[in-house]
Amino acid sequence: MGTRAMTRLSSSFAKGRPTFVAFITAGDGDTAANLDALVEGGADVIELGMPFTDPMADGPAIQAANLRSLGAGTTTADVFAIAAAFRQRHPQVPLVLMGYANPMVRRGPEWFAAECARAGVDGVICVDIPPEEDDALGPALRAEGIAPIRLATPTTDARRLPKVLEGSSGFLYYVSVAGITGLQQAATASIAEAVARLKAATDLPVAVGFGVRTPEQAAAIAAHADGVVVGSALVELVGKHGSHAPAHLRELTAALAQAVHGAHQPA
């Protein structure tokens, strides 16, 4: 299972064009229908947010999505049920869980990693477990063949980068701004410079997220990165359109995916 999981993620980054990663929060609206819309729109990788009461790294859009989901009674079991059903419907689309440490370690890291494996999850992004605290979750994930996907940020300097890369797999998620999700966007030039610096240090694909909202922004970043992540703009559609969200998600995803896939990469 581990090998297949790694293959799903790595093959999605080996299509000869940049990868589009789409994020929504689990349990916010009709998640199954929303996820299908993302796939139909052309998303290459799905990043599924695990709702948490205290999403410290998130801006207003994803905070609201977390609260809507928890308000609707979403449990950890529900999140894994959503993931497992997605895996049944879409055997080839990589699925990554994103969230915060406490819901992930509540029943023990081994329990969480085993559930991820059972549900067909390919990777896990945990915002508040830096490499220094890898013991809290990393070994359990690796034992199950689940990729621990780490974050690099504008504050991750050259001295620190090897520590971030050590033990990470799947892809490297570059947080393009020092800040929270969904608000400001970094200048393309600074992103290009940062991605070049990261790629010089690792063979992992580098996907860029935080503050990316429009096809134009996505295309500009995709010209330099292996992947682009969009979350808040999609989550806002779920909040705004409720049960009618799938059509809107499909439309925006198509525009974003097209922009990312067609971006010119300098040789």
Partner: peptide
Amino acid sequence: ERGHFGDYGGRYVAETLMPL
């Protein structure tokens, strides 16, 4: 030296804050 009090404490922060 890692900021742990036995099983407790530590530095569970987002990467952006870690260098700081």
